[in-house]
């Protein structure tokens, strides 16, 4: 979670200090805001811990502030021409799958499932943008590294929880593996370059 938090802070600090969101995919950031919104609908109904509640609020705030920076405050620096990933290619399959494969057919549960599936592919517009322009600022690569590391660390956490609590969540685990795989090529480049 701290790796995830660090990633989001890095991105915000980068945008704020440079007063620019060049090289950042607004579409990926909108998807992340949508991920947190649909996942944290239980913010007021399902209390886990103070840590859990505080982190949810911080994640939501970070996501929305980032979107605000890109599409409002620093919109003149937004590289709209290169942020061309077609969101419907992600949203249509993800919506379909969240209705087909979920734990229970209730609105909040389907939306939670949607958020898990969507998160696994939400970075693709950003990765597409980088491959299209062929460049990324150093700070952007740090952002991506910690964002990918967070899900890779969750894989270890899930193995630990299965061993110690016999707890496992197939939807999270399969999506988490898929999500981590999308970062592998990037991890390789990050470490070698």
């Amino acid at each position: 979670d701290l790796s995830h938090l660090l990633a989001m802070f890095l991105l915000l600090v980068k945008i704020w200090r440079s007063k620019s969101c060049a090289g950042i995919s607004g579409k990926s950031q909108i998807l992340f805001a949508l991920v947190f919104t649909t996942r944290y609908l239980d913010l007021f109904s399902n209390f886990i811990s103070i840590y859990n509640t505080v982190m949810k609020v911080v994640f939501l705030l970070c996501a929305y502030v980032t979107v605000y920076m890109i599409y409002w405050k620093f919109r003149k620096t937004f590289d709209n021409e290169n942020d061309t990933f077609r969101l419907e290619f992600l949203l249509v399959p993800v919506i379909g799958l969240s209705f087909l494969v979920n734990y229970s057919y209730t609105p909040t549960e389907v939306l939670w499932t949607f958020s898990i599936y969507l998160e696994s592919v939400a970075i693709l517009p950003q990765l597409f943008m980088i491959s299209k322009t062929g460049e990324a600022e150093t700070i952007t690569t740090h952002y991506l590294f910690f964002l990918g590391l967070y899900r890779a660390l969750y894989l270890a956490n899930w193995i630990w929880r299965y061993q110690t609590e016999n707890f496992y969540d197939q939807i999270s685990v399969v999506s988490g593996v898929v999500q981590t795989i999308f970062y592998c090529d990037f991890f390789y480049l990050y470490v070698t370059k």
Partner: peptide, 10 residues
């Protein structure tokens, strides 16, 4: 475990 309720991960 009932996985349909109480997701405790972020």
């Amino acid at each position: 475990a009932d996985l349909s309720t109480g997701h405790d991960e972020l």
